[in-house]
C-alpha cells in the first residue's frame, strides 16, 4: 500500500469513527425514549435500559385519549402550523422587499428587525405577558401564535433575505418586461426560486416552535389550551414522574417533526448548498 493510500485509509477510519460516535450520541437517547415509550413506568423503574419484554402499544391510545394528548397535539398543530404559515408568508414578503427594493432606511430597518434576536426570551416575557393581558390575548392560542410569529420573524427574514438577495436582478427585470406586476413577480418568480430557503425556515421554525416551552407555560393557563410540551410536563409531578407516559408523549410529539423533516429535507439540503454551484 502506498503512503498516499495509507493516509487516505487512516482519514477514512477517523471520519467513520467520528461519525459513528456522533450518530450514537444523537440516536442513542432517541432509541432509549422509543423503547421506554413501549414499556410501563414500573418496568422502567426496575431496569432503565432494558429492551421491552412486551410491547405496550396500548400506551399510545391511552395517552392520546385518557391523558388529553389529543387536545395538546391539536393545540400544538394549530398554533405551530398557523405561526409557521404566517412566518413563511410575511417573512418572505419582508425579505423580498429588503433584498430587492432600494428605499430609504432599508438597511436601518433590516438591522433593527434583525437586532431583536439578541434579546433572550426571558427579557421580553414579562412585557409580552402584560401586552397580551391588555389586549385580551392572554391565555389564548391566537395570542400565543402572534408571540411565536414575533419571536421567529427576525431570523426568518434574515435567512430568506440572504437567499433572495442572491437571485439575479435580471430575472425580475425579464419578468417586468414579460408583463408581470411586482406582486406577480413575488409569487411566480421569487417564491418558487426560494423554495430551498423557504423549506429551511419551515423546518427550523416548526421544530423550534413545536418544542417551545417557555412562552407557552407563561402565556397559557387553561388545561384545554395547553400545547404538547406543557402536556408532557403534566406527567412530571413533585413526588413522582410517570416516565413511561412521558416517553409515550414524547414519541407522539416527535412524529410530526420527523414527518416535516422527511418532507422538506431534500429542499433543506438544497438550501444549505445553494450558491455553492452557480
Amino acid at each position: 500500500m502506498s503512503k498516499e493510500a495509507r493516509v487516505h485509509r487512516i482519514k477514512q477510519v477517523v471520519l467513520v469513527t467520528a461519525l459513528a460516535i456522533y450518530t450514537m450520541l444523537a440516536a442513542g437517547p432517541f432509541l432509549w425514549v422509543a423503547s421506554m415509550s413501549l414499556r410501563t413506568t414500573s418496568e422502567i423503574s426496575k431496569d432503565h435500559f432494558r429492551l421491552p419484554d412486551t410491547l405496550h402499544w396500548e400506551k399510545f391510545p391511552d395517552a392520546w385519549f385518557n391523558s388529553n394528548y389529543g387536545v395538546y397535539f391539536s393545540n400544538s398543530l394549530l398554533v405551530v402550523l398557523s405561526a409557521v404559515a404566517i412566518l413563511t408568508l410575511v417573512g418572505a414578503m419582508a425579505a423580498h422587499c429588503f433584498a430587492r427594493y432600494r428605499f430609504r432606511l432599508n438597511r436601518v430597518l433590516y438591522f433593527v428587525i434583525f437586532s431583536t434576536i439578541i434579546f433572550p426570551p426571558q427579557i421580553t416575557i414579562i412585557a409580552l405577558f402584560q401586552i397580551l393581558v391588555e389586549y385580551g390575548l392572554f391565555n389564548s392560542l391566537f395570542g400565543l401564535t402572534l408571540v411565536y410569529v414575533a419571536f421567529q420573524l427576525p431570523i426568518t427574514i434574515y435567512i430568506l433575505e440572504s437567499f433572495f438577495s442572491r437571485i439575479p436582478n435580471d430575472l425580475f427585470e425579464a419578468a417586468r418586461i414579460d408583463g408581470y406586476s411586482e406582486w406577480s413577480i413575488f409569487w411566480r418568480i421569487s417564491l418558487p426560486i426560494a423554495l430551498p430557503a423557504l423549506s429551511t425556515t419551515i423546518i427550523l421554525n416548526t421544530i423550534l416552535l413545536w418544542n417551545e416551552f417557555l412562552y407557552a407555560v407563561v402565556l397559557i393557563t387553561d388545561e384545554d389550551k395547553r400545547t404538547l410540551p406543557l402536556g408532557i410536563q403534566r406527567f412530571m409531578g413533585d413526588q413522582m414522574e410517570d416516565i413511561g407516559m412521558i416517553s409515550t408523549g414524547l414519541m407522539i410529539a416527535i412524529i410530526p417533526v420527523v414527518m416535516i423533516y422527511a418532507f422538506f429535507s431534500e429542499k433543506l439540503i438544497q438550501g444549505m448548498t445553494a450558491g455553492a454551484v452557480k
Binding site: L171, A174, I177, G179, Y180, I193
Partner: peptide, 17 residues
C-alpha cells in the same frame, strides 16, 4: 416596461430557473 411592447435579451439570459 410591460406596456412598451419590447423584448429584451439579457447578458445573463435571465431564464427562470
Amino acid at each position: 416596461a410591460k406596456d412598451r411592447d419590447i423584448a429584451m435579451v439579457f447578458q445573463s439570459y435571465a431564464l427562470y430557473p
